[in-house]
């Protein structure tokens, strides 16, 4: 069992948890993820590592409830436990494993969309600890979806906030900010790291391709085991089939077939929708249209 030391509601629909997992905390690096399973009957859910404390032996995760399992996670409190919590999975960000002197020469822009701020944060923090100040764009549909602003400001160079509806920071989607920074505000970047919903990563890549900025994205396909034994998370990268859980999750964004990846993400949409309704409606749930026997 993996004890939850802290469970906190963030702004918007998001939650933060600090979980006791000493082996993971000792070995993880930014860019990696964990798989959590709440109880015996639960499914295995991949979540990125937002922060870690090697001394305390803890991992911080940030998540947005979007389905039955993550909805159930929100009901867990400090003192409760995950039955299973495994990792660190995937390859660390190359920024943390490449030659540091080479990384130092680069001007890096991070683009965090929504809950994507969670996996961006440890990378920016790691760079900061190694004397590199990267710029960060944090974007969200509206003000309450902007995450980790203060934390990011403490470790980044410039932080640019943008909301689609203009309720906070700049107005517009992240790609607009990228274009403004590069085309109108005299900034230049050697590398962009974009993490967020697939659609946001897709459009970011289209923009950075135009601007000629190499771009790394962190893919979030469906996973089961997360150790390379099933291929549920496979993606087409360039001409090759890759397993995101072991070959990634970070890839060259300009080589990803996003349209195919997004279609694969939708595979269980019907089942997921039903499962979420069941959790939300609890005892009042009757199985949805077609299954409902009426008020018999």
């Amino acid at each position: 069992m993996y004890k939850i030391k802290k469970a906190e509601k963030l702004t918007g629909p998001n939650y933060l948890m600090v979980v006791e997992a000493p082996r993971i905390a000792k070995h993880c690096l930014p860019g990696q993820f964990i798989i959590a399973k709440e109880d015996e009957k639960g499914e295995r859910i991949p979540l990125t590592i937002c922060d870690y404390d090697r001394e305390e032996g803890t991992i911080t995760i940030v998540f947005q409830p979007i389905g039955a399992s993550t909805e159930k996670f929100t009901r867990l409190k400090a003192g409760d436990s995950f039955r299973d919590f495994v990792g660190p999975l995937g390859k660390p960000s190359e920024l943390c494993t490449d030659d540091l002197e080479e990384v130092k020469k680069k001007k890096i822009l991070f683009v965090a969309g929504g809950v994507g701020a969670a996996p961006v944060y440890p990378q920016v923090k790691w760079l900061h600890e190694h004397g590199i100040e990267a710029d960060v764009i944090i974007g969200g549909r509206t003000k309450e979806l902007i995450l980790l602003e203060d934390e990011m400001k403490a470790v980044a160079g410039n932080v640019y906030i943008t909301t689609d509806d203009g309720s906070y920071g700049r107005t517009g989607v992240v790609t607009k900010v990228i274009e403004d920074l590069v085309q109108n505000e005299g900034k230049s970047y050697d590398l962009c790291v974009a993490i967020g919903p697939m659609i946001m990563m897709k459009f970011t890549c289209m923009t950075t391709k135009k601007l000629n900025i190499p771009t790394v994205v962190s893919m979030n396909p469906i996973m089961v085991d997360g150790t390379g034994m099933c291929g549920a998370c496979r993606l087409t990268v360039g001409d090759e089939v890759k397993f995101a859980c072991v070959d990634g999750p970070e890839f060259d964004g300009h080589l990803i077939d996003f349209d195919a990846a997004m279609k694969r993400q939708m595979m269980y949409k019907t089942e997921e929708g039903r499962a979420l309704l069941k959790v939300r409606e609890g005892d009042t749930h009757h199985g949805g249209c077609g299954n409902c026997g009426g008020d018999e």
């Binding site: 089961v224 085991d225 034994m229 099933c230 291929g231 993606l235 089939v241 195919a260 939708m266 595979m267």
Partner: peptide, 16 residues
Amino acid sequence: GENANGVFSANEYLTR
């Protein structure tokens, strides 16, 4: 077409 929705490795199918 091998990455299409509905194509599984036996490992994935059996693990699920």
